[in-house]
């Protein structure tokens, strides 16, 4: 109990956990695109930046309430998601990935060259509106809505697209539009995450949203277990806390981080929780507790 209290009152833990929550929302958005629908997106940070800059500009110049700005940030990101999706969702696999990567870089360069966003000098003077409570309420809402989406007709259609596009198409799913819809929902969450980021950091710079940020978020989704919400949560937790835990190794930190990425993929190529059905594991643990000792089969 004491430990929980110290996490809430210690500003450092508070800060780290808030950041983790913010990136978790973005990662959950990417989870829908990449994990559930199976579409590569290497430019997720661009949608964060769209949400971040638009909401911050609204807060600064229009003085509209934060929640409205956050919503607009999310919707604007989704709009750009749709605009990018319309031409590029006809591409598949790596081609889609590289197109989104290119889009991400172009967005960043446009922000560098835009006057109202402060260009390369960045945008400061954003009031602090984000706090740990808001972030985690939104995390819960995001997780809840993603569960609802995944278990709906829409979500099952997305899973069908991931498994076999042609089969999905013959089953009467409009693959193209479903992909765009998934992209829109996923980028909406990225926009919301960006808005939270802007009102947490209070200062934005285009360099915060380069492709390395996009790949960080992709890592969160893949490393935890592609296609699984608990996996995405675990991946985000492990990878955003790892740099903090690795502080003691000082300048060797990124060396170990890189090596960890390779090792985790080699030993768990489907992610930490890939192929692990948590409900089944939980049931088998419980039934073992009752003395039955059944174990789920290995695959």
């Amino acid at each position: 109990m004491e430990g929980v209290l110290s996490i809430l009152t210690n500003p450092y833990y508070n800060q780290v956990l808030t950041m983790m929550g913010i990136f978790l929302i973005a990662a959950l958005g990417l989870h829908l695109i990449t994990g559930v629908t199976g579409q590569f997106s290497f430019g997720h940070a661009a949608f964060l930046s769209i949400g971040a800059y638009s909401s911050a500009l609204m807060t600064i110049y229009l003085h509209t309430p934060f929640f409205l700005n956050m919503l607009v940030g999310g919707l604007l990101a989704a709009l750009f998601g749709i605009l990018l999706g319309i031409p590029s969702m006809r591409l598949t696999g790596d081609y889609l990935g590289i197109t989104t990567l290119g889009f991400g870089e172009i967005v960043r360069i446009v922000f560098i060259n835009t006057k109202i966003t402060g260009g390369a000098m960045g945008l400061g003077g954003i009031p602090k509106e984000t706090n740990i409570a808001i972030v985690y309420i939104l995390v819960v809402l995001t997780v809840f809505s993603l569960y609802r989406i995944q278990n709906s007709r829409f979500g099952r259609a997305l899973a069908a697209i991931r498994e076999d596009e042609i089969a999905a198409e013959t089953m009467g799913i409009n693959v193209y539009w479903y992909k765009i819809k998934a992209f829109a929902v996923g980028t909406f969450f990225a926009g919301v995450s960006g808005a939270l980021f802007a009102h947490m950091m209070q200062y934005l710079n285009p360099s915060d949203f380069g492709f390395s940020r996009s790949f960080d978020i992709l890592n969160f989704v893949v490393l935890g277990g592609l296609g699984s919400i608990p996996g995405t949560i675990l991946g985000t937790a492990v990878l955003s806390l790892a740099p903090e835990f690795l502080r003691f190794v000082k300048e060797y930190r990124m060396l170990i981080y890189g090596a960890l990425m390779i090792l985790m993929m080699i030993f768990r190529p489907y992610g930490l929780l890939g192929n692990v059905d948590l409900v089944r594991v939980f049931r088998s643990l419980r039934s073992r507790g009752a003395g039955k000792g059944t174990v789920s089969g290995d695959s």
Partner: peptide
């Protein structure tokens, strides 16, 4: 995606 992430790991390393 697995070898892609692994490649990024090599790159950072």
């Amino acid at each position: 995606l697995a070898p892609l992430i692994s490649a990024l790991g090599v790159s950072i390393f």
